[in-house]
């Protein structure tokens, strides 16, 4: 083994051979597929991919399409408020749960249960709950409040928040459980020390506990953002993009143009824009997170 020149490439051979299938899959499926999509976004492919170049035409059309621009605005509104509210609600629930309450197991189960449901089921359940005739509004009116109005899904200005309500209901439990696990990992001694120093509980949470929970926050951030980007199915089940374009999402635009409008070129241009948007956020973050390490 020791004879011959040491060669970096052949060190640890078995492990490298074992990794080949995965490397190939990653190259072909992820990078290859992505590259293929980008290339065909410059063609006028209709139902089937065809290599007829049209330059930037698809992108020009995309950015002149009202529906695409509305979709992006919707995603921004939904994404930002979802991100903030998920963290706030998740953390509050976890902090409350951490007060050594009775029946904690029961509450934890109740809070986490919605996460076991798919987005499709969640969307349908909330479509019914928010239906003005049979849902919450209908029940409250039957109880005697005749003028009670709660029908976000039928109001173009509020529909996106109706979708968010469902997403929060489904996702908050998971954030709570993550945070709770983090909180349980905090040493009791830290709480004792803070108490001796006379620091109020809320300050302890805000300035000591939360900074210590950084890894948990990052995990939660990744889970929540990926949930935001793949919000497609929830929208389809709950509102199918309506009323009007009020809850349209970029992912739905891609799907609709790919399969319904039979215009692959346009769909690929839209998905390339989505990829670009993700890269703009992820690359600087990744460089900060992983690139900086070497200099430590």
């Amino acid at each position: 083994m020791a004879s011959g020149r040491p060669n970096q490439l052949f060190r640890n051979k078995t492990a490298k051979i074992a990794a080949i299938p995965m490397i190939l899959t990653a190259m072909v499926v992820f990078i290859g597929g992505t590259g293929w999509t980008v290339v065909y976004s410059f063609t006028k492919s209709k139902l089937l991919p065809k290599l007829e170049w049209v330059g930037l035409d698809q992108y020009e059309r995309l950015w002149n399409t009202n529906r695409w621009i509305v979709s992006i605005e919707n995603l921004a509104v939904y994404g930002l408020s979802m991100l903030v509210l998920s963290f706030v609600i998740g953390f509050l629930l976890a902090a409350l749960m951490d007060q050594k309450i009775r029946f904690e197991n029961t509450f934890r189960t109740i809070m986490l249960y919605p996460f076991a449901l798919s987005f499709i089921v969640t969307g349908l359940v909330w479509q019914w709950l928010l239906n003005p005739e049979f849902g919450i509004q209908g029940i409250v009116r039957d109880l005697g409040w005749e003028n009670f109005a709660f029908d976000p899904l039928y109001n173009a200005d509020l529909a996106i928040f109706g979708v968010m309500l469902a997403a929060l209901w489904q996702g908050s439990g998971l954030v709570m459980v993550l945070m709770l696990a983090g909180l349980r990992g905090i040493d009791e001694e830290i709480w004792k020390a803070a108490r001796i120093d006379g620091i109020p509980t809320w300050k302890t949470y805000l300035f000591i506990i939360i900074p210590m929970l950084r890894p948990v926050f990052i995990t939660a951030l990744v889970l929540i953002t990926s949930g935001i980007i793949r919000v497609y199915d929830l929208v389809v089940a709950q509102t199918s993009g309506g009323p009007g374009l009020a809850t349209e999402m970029p992912a739905k635009y891609v799907y609709d143009y790919m399969f319904r409008a039979q215009n692959l070129g346009q769909a690929f241009a839209a998905s390339t824009m989505m990829l670009l948007a993700v890269l703009v956020v992820v690359v600087p973050w990744a460089m900060m997170e992983f690139g900086g390490r070497k200099n430590d």
């Binding site: 374009l245 009020a246 039979q262």
Partner: peptide, 19 residues
Amino acid sequence: LTPDTTSQINDLFAEFFAD
């Protein structure tokens, strides 16, 4: 009309009728 044009017209009227 191609399905592509039909989709564009559908989108336009979805917006028109809601707003």
